[in-house]
Amino acid sequence: MEIINIDQNITLLINGFSGHVLFFDILFVIITNDYLIPVLSALSLFYLWFSGINSIERYISQKFVITGISSIIFSNIIVLLSNVFWLRSRPYETLDSINLLFYRSTDPSFPSNPVVVCSAIFFVITFRNKIIGILGLLMSLFLGFSKIYLGVSYSLDVIGGFLFGILSGLFSFLFISFFSRFIERILRSVKIFGLN
C-alpha cells in the first residue's frame, strides 16, 4: 500500500506541471501519440534489417530483427498475463485532481503498453547497435514520462512497463536461441524474395 501511495504522489507531482506551459503540453501530446514512437521503434528494426557491410553482417542484423519481432509478441503476452492479475484503474478514474490532456483509455493502466513494446524492441537493438538502442530506451522512458504528464498513466505503470519490456527482450533472445535453425530457414526464404 505504501508503494501505491508513493506512486500516486509522484504521478500527481508530474501531472501537476501540465496545463501551465502550452509548448510542453503540445510536445507531450505529440510524443504520447499512439503511432509516433511505436512507429519509430519498428522503423529502427527496418533500418537494422538492411544494415551490415557484407552479407554475413547483414545476416546477423536480420537475426536481431527477428528477435525484436518476437520480443513484440512476448511483450503482448506479458501484458495480457499481467492484466489477469491486476486490472489497475487509470489515474483520472481514481485521483480527483488529475489534469487529463489525452483521451480516456479503456484498457488497464498497468503496465503502460507502448512502453513495454518500445523498450522490448530497443533492448534487443542495443545488442546490435548501441547508439540506436540506448537512444530508443531513453525515448521509451520519455514516452512513459509524457503519459504521466498527460494523466494517462501512473509512474509505476511506466517503470513496470520498462522492466516488462526488458524481460520480453530477454525471453525473445532465449526463444531465438532455441529455434535458431528455424530462423535460418526464414532468413534464407526471405533472400529468395529479394527482401534482403
Binding site: I26, V29, I30, T32, N33, D34, Y35, L101, F102, Y103, R104, S105, T106
Partner: peptide, 8 residues
C-alpha cells in the same frame, strides 16, 4: 495537435 490522438 490532439486531433491525431484517437481511441481505438
Amino acid at each position: 495537435f490532439s486531433l491525431r490522438n484517437i481511441n481505438d
